[in-house]
């Protein structure tokens, strides 16, 4: 290796580079403007205009909206009912609807009371509660009392009816496999006919109302 400091002339005395002041080529500016225009067009088509809820391949909120599942319908009511059920009923009947023998709560799963043709006696039962013996799936339950859960739900009469309808829909759908929605109007009519009653129902009374 060459250890000697070799100071060549261009190393010690050198001029710094300069920049010529030639004009800018126009084609570059034209190209930039064209590309900018195309980019803006592209952004307009696919960019979703800064919407945080728009992800490719969707291009706008309206586009995302086109693929939203239909709300209304039984699925929504079932979802609502599921929440209300776990807040108000699951304490005794359990989330899975298997009941709780220790407290004298009969099961709901496949119960003939749940699978009745219309929801009339279920709405009555939920509204005013039940006392006395009741036979579920061939077994007699006699040690518990169901409170008037429906009456004690918060809200106006219309809201109560709507909530009871959701619970009934969910219970019948989930535990009775009956995919028929119980309408709030139907519940309101039933509740209007029993609105002055304060005592719990008994099983016989319910069977009389809807055999």
């Amino acid at each position: 290796m060459n250890a000697d400091p070799k100071k060549s002339s261009d190393v010690t005395n050198e001029a710094e580079p300069t920049a010529a002041m030639t004009a800018m080529p126009v084609w570059l500016v034209a190209l930039m403007v064209t590309l900018l225009f195309l980019s803006a067009w592209y952004f307009d088509l696919y960019g979703g205009w800064f919407e945080p809820k728009v992800f490719s391949p969707y291009v706008s909120v309206a586009d995302v909206q086109r693929f939203q599942p239909k709300t209304g319908g039984i699925a929504e009511t079932v979802a609502r009912g599921k929440k209300l059920f776990s807040d108000n009923c699951a304490v005794c009947h359990m989330e899975t609807g298997v009941g709780n023998p220790a407290n004298g709560c009969p099961p709901l799963v496949d119960s003939e009371w749940v699978k009745s043709p219309t929801a009339t006696r279920m709405v009555m039962l939920i509204s005013k509660g039940l006392s006395g013996p009741i036979t579920v799936n061939g077994k007699v339950w006699n040690s518990g009392v169901m409170l008037a859960v429906g009456d004690s739900l918060p809200g106006s009469e219309a809201e109560k009816a709507e909530k009871i309808a959701a619970i009934a829909t969910y219970v019948r759908f989930q535990f009775g496999k009956i995919a028929v929605e119980t309408k709030p109007a139907q519940v309101e009519a039933i509740r209007a006919s029993i609105k002055d009653r304060t005592a719990n129902f008994t099983a016989e009374e319910l069977l009389k109302a809807e055999p």
């Binding site: 992800f55 298997v98 496949d110």
Partner: peptide
């Protein structure tokens, strides 16, 4: 923002536990 129909939920329990 990413709609999809979920696969059918497992059928509700049929056996009376």
């Amino acid at each position: 923002e990413s709609p999809v129909t979920p696969p059918p939920a497992a059928a509700p329990a049929t056996n009376t536990v």
